[in-house]
Nucleic acid binder design. Sequence first.
DNA 1: GATGAATGAGCTTTCATTCAT
DNA 2: AATGAATGAAAGCTCATTCAT
Lengths: 195, 195, 195, 195
Amino acid sequence: MTDKKQQKKEQIMLASLGLFASKGFYNTTIPDIALSLKMSVGNMYNYFKSKDLLAKEIIKFVSSYFGKKIRAINEENISTKEKTRKIVEIYFQTAIVKPEMLDYFLRIYLSTREVFKDGCEGMICVNDFVTEIMIYFEEGVKCGDLRDQDFFNAFGLFMGYLGGMVFLQGENVLPKKLNEYVDDVSDNIYKALSA
Amino acid sequence: MTDKKQQKKEQIMLASLGLFASKGFYNTTIPDIALSLKMSVGNMYNYFKSKDLLAKEIIKFVSSYFGKKIRAINEENISTKEKTRKIVEIYFQTAIVKPEMLDYFLRIYLSTREVFKDGCEGMICVNDFVTEIMIYFEEGVKCGDLRDQDFFNAFGLFMGYLGGMVFLQGENVLPKKLNEYVDDVSDNIYKALSA
Amino acid sequence: MTDKKQQKKEQIMLASLGLFASKGFYNTTIPDIALSLKMSVGNMYNYFKSKDLLAKEIIKFVSSYFGKKIRAINEENISTKEKTRKIVEIYFQTAIVKPEMLDYFLRIYLSTREVFKDGCEGMICVNDFVTEIMIYFEEGVKCGDLRDQDFFNAFGLFMGYLGGMVFLQGENVLPKKLNEYVDDVSDNIYKALSA
Amino acid sequence: MTDKKQQKKEQIMLASLGLFASKGFYNTTIPDIALSLKMSVGNMYNYFKSKDLLAKEIIKFVSSYFGKKIRAINEENISTKEKTRKIVEIYFQTAIVKPEMLDYFLRIYLSTREVFKDGCEGMICVNDFVTEIMIYFEEGVKCGDLRDQDFFNAFGLFMGYLGGMVFLQGENVLPKKLNEYVDDVSDNIYKALSA
DNA sequence: GATGAATGAGCTTTCATTCAT
DNA sequence: AATGAATGAAAGCTCATTCAT
């Protein structure tokens, strides 16, 4: 594939990401996406063979985006406690400045099972992201900061909690701004996970 | 409304709940539901004026179901720690024996925003459930067991975590059975929330 | 048929007349009518075997209503010119105080051909009304006031004109109130028809 | 819009005009129209966003058709009396050779209020036609042939009368052929309107 | 690569009418 | 006579996808 084609694919993914996240997968039509990109419906299919495939490529893109952010944190020479805080920070930061990323993750990927069933089994489409959380966790355990427990238990706590907070923000029920919860949330997580 | 009609409404809700949860809101058609109940499509509309309204009544039903379960726990004369454990237990238990309840909550309600936007703003359709969690939390604070913090922070941790675990189970990535996590999960939650 | 039944039939016709006239034949449902009468849908069918039959009985009712009004004028001992004026007057008066009567005639009967095709051929459902206009015309001719021409030509002029004015009023394009046109309109008609 | 697309839109309008006029608006379905044109239902919607919009574009088309015919007469250098006769002639001629045009006007446009309410208020969708009749009338007044009266009064007489005659023909009650009425009808009109 | 007209299956919803009670 | 739940056919409209150009 040419560079140019790859570039256009990403343009399409970015536009679709925004539309899917804000209107939902089933309420976003291919013509909607094409229109927003000022390209023709038919041409869309030169880049993505189907709407489902497009959705799957987007979640990989989102996962990779978060994976990179967390890898950068993992590579810093700081305590696990500080890492925890930074992950929470980057998550909430994204919820504020790029809400479509988390909306896609939380509202499209996690719930439109029919679409991701074939091709994304066992979280392989969000592998980049999960892997980095796994590294964060295992290094925390190795250096004695975190208790050694079932990884997915820790993962469920960490990511479920963050997702829950972002969801509550989306429902407008949080009394404070999301970023003002960074300290409390990372404290709670660290309390639960630390050795 | 007659008792008989009310009973039929509940039959329809139960059948729809199962179908929505397993196939998704948009992939479940009114004919699907009617067929599963052996009733005519037209007659469905004598009970629910629209598919959206049906979905909204179902979430209230689910919320009320969980609300009752948790109220029973709240009314027991046990420590906050024990209550915490019991809530986790009932949640995971439901995920195992009535998975459609939690699937509906996690995959339909939490993510099909378009549908619940009008009429379920600010979590009012899940009020029964949220209220009981609030009671659990406030009583825990009052008796000195739990730290006094922003309720929604605690709620996000508790419910996000549980939702996360159920989601991971649904993805078949958990090495152990869900009910084997009850102790660890309630420990983690209690660690995070206790005074 | 009992008197009571006949009375109820008329109640139904009156209610339907109003609904058909204001919302149109196809936009008025049997449940709409039943609701407005606080009776059950099923019971409606004890009085009228079908919606079409109901519509046909109503036009006969309307025709008879106008027939009686015009007969009264025909029986008065006044000049043809005065009769002409009185017919225009009663027509416009009705358009103002019982608009549903004329709306039914002009918008339902004249245009919903499918419905009146079988059973109302050749204006037999509006016979009462047409007959009285015929009497008005023939007596006018006999006494030398009106020119002897094809009756339907005269009828088309008279009734087309009146219908046209009522329609224009319904479109809110008339600069004056409808009843202020009585003189001009009857003058125009008399000019055209007089010997 | 391309020329080709415009051409197809007109094909659709022509086919729909015929079907609406003969079967009525509500008894003509989009599948009916599509079938008559051998095109798919979905494709119809690439040309007209809704059935209502289609109906509105058709009435403008019909109005423009008549407008042009009458303009040609207005531009001729003949007496008002002759113009009157020619307008009657063209109207009856159309009723005979293109009955769908007048049926659409008289049976669909004039009576299906619900459909034309939004977007055709105050006769704006038949503006082309009304304007030419207005020109006919005002020039007739200016040159002293016609009496100066409320335009809509004259319009109601002229058009109501013609519509009435066409309606009577449609009911098969006229003893003579429609075109044999041209002289009598134009005489009657001229008698009523002349100075 | 690019266009957008065309397809056709499928959706939600409506409603005249029937019928068991 | 009266009720209203039940039927089922059909309507308007949508949309992922294809394909001739």
